[in-house]
Amino acid sequence: MKVAVLGTGGGGRAHAVRLLELGHEVYVGTRDSQVTLGRTEPDFMGIEPFGQWVADYPGIELMNFDEAAASADFVINGIDGANAVRVLSGIGRHLAGKTLMDYAVPFIYNPEQAHPWPTPWGVMPALDPVDHDSLGERIQRALPQAKVVKACVTQEQETVVHPQAVAGGDHTMFIAGEHEDAKAEVTALLRSYGWRDILDLGPLVSSRGMEMYSHMHSAIQFALGGARFGMKVMR
């Protein structure tokens, strides 16, 4: 399968490498490929420059967002939440009819808050939208011809692509969306990653809960000293 991973951060890189291992053709999308390849300093998260990283994976091709989306049969969105709708809207013609697996969280970094939540790495980002709407729903409204499936929101993406790293893989992945065929396609990909327990939460409105869980996930991880973990739904 030809897969576009939109975003060059740690999450996008994790998916790109795993997809390559599984035999897919992988295109990573960025705003300007030449600018991305020309960076020589780590990003604000301390991640090494993309050009240095991708040199170890010659099978991964870096393209501009529109080129990557046009080249792919299946698209994974890892664009940061503040910019995702704008960027995806600009390449919407290349996403029509395709499954778009979205794992982005609508974080607003360094928010002005009366009662900020201090964390080991700075102030906890705020969520916008929250409760009354979700990023997943906004993307679907902006791209009515695409098939948006919210998934991979409740774990770090490194755990998403290697679920067996936590409890031998005995934890739960959640998905939501309006298109049954797209959810089946996402489920097949997740099973190829190693997921055994995939819970379909139903319509895309459920992505509100998935995105809002991000703060709870952070709180648990702080309590565990940064260790990776998973959530298991017992039924």
Rank of each mutant, 00 (worst) to 15 (best):
E156F: 12
R235A: 09
A4S: 04
A96K: 11
H162R: 11
K147H: 14
F50P: 11
D43Q: 04
D102N: 15
D170N: 13
D102G: 01
H15N: 07
S214T: 15
L224N: 06
T172A: 09
Y27P: 07
R86N: 15
V186Q: 13
A14R: 05
T187Y: 12
W53T: 08
Q221F: 01
G209S: 11
T172Y: 09
Q221P: 01
G81T: 04
K150R: 12
Q157D: 09
T40W: 04
D181C: 02
P42N: 10
F74P: 03
A55S: 13
A14L: 03
D128F: 14
C152T: 11
R228D: 12
D181F: 02
K150Y: 03
D181T: 07
V166K: 03
G122P: 07
T36S: 12
A16H: 06
P129G: 06
H171G: 05
N83W: 08
V35E: 04
H171S: 08
F50K: 09
G23E: 08
A184K: 13
E211N: 06
A146T: 07
L100N: 07
A96R: 11
N83Y: 10
H162T: 05
V205H: 10
V17R: 12
Q164I: 03
V123M: 06
G209M: 12
E41Q: 14
G194E: 04
A96Y: 05
Y57V: 01
R13K: 08
A165S: 14
A142H: 02
M210E: 03
V160S: 08
P116D: 09
H217G: 11
Y27S: 15
V130S: 14
N64Q: 06
Y109R: 14
G136I: 02
V87K: 02
